[in-house]
Amino acid sequence: MLREVVVVGLILGGAIFMALAGLGMLRMPDLFLRMSSSAKAGTLGAGLILLGAAIHFDNFSIYTRALAIIIFLMLTAPVAAHMIGRAAYFDGVPLWEGTVQDDLRGHYRASTHALETTTIPQNDRPITDIEADPETSDFDR
């Protein structure tokens, strides 16, 4: 009885977090905000559902498998978010106009894709930076 309550709570909680992440994808104004809504909730939601399933079956091999899946999700989801964010920034996906600060601007070198601590000259920056500064016209898209 108690186990059933715990299992239902975990799976329901996981499903709610994932549904909210989906709602966040619709409501958030730009790609980076959408990612911070989905990267976290996806991991926690899947983790809770897996934990609920493991407790339901209460079998050692299922516990270890659930644990392994959760660990791999935690290791890989942030890497995927990092790669998507980086690719989007290079591809000119604009940040929401309400963004108060953008420290990435001027630090990517477009020719080598390196991220440097020093400021990069105007003609070697990715598309996002050029669009943000209308007066730079020496870059032909």
Binding site: A39, K40, M74, P78, V79, H82, G85, L104, L115, E116
Partner: peptide, 17 residues
Amino acid sequence: SNMMTLTPGTLSLDIST
């Protein structure tokens, strides 16, 4: 950076070369 992506309101975008 992995932990920062999964915790309060932050998302690691990139690490300088």
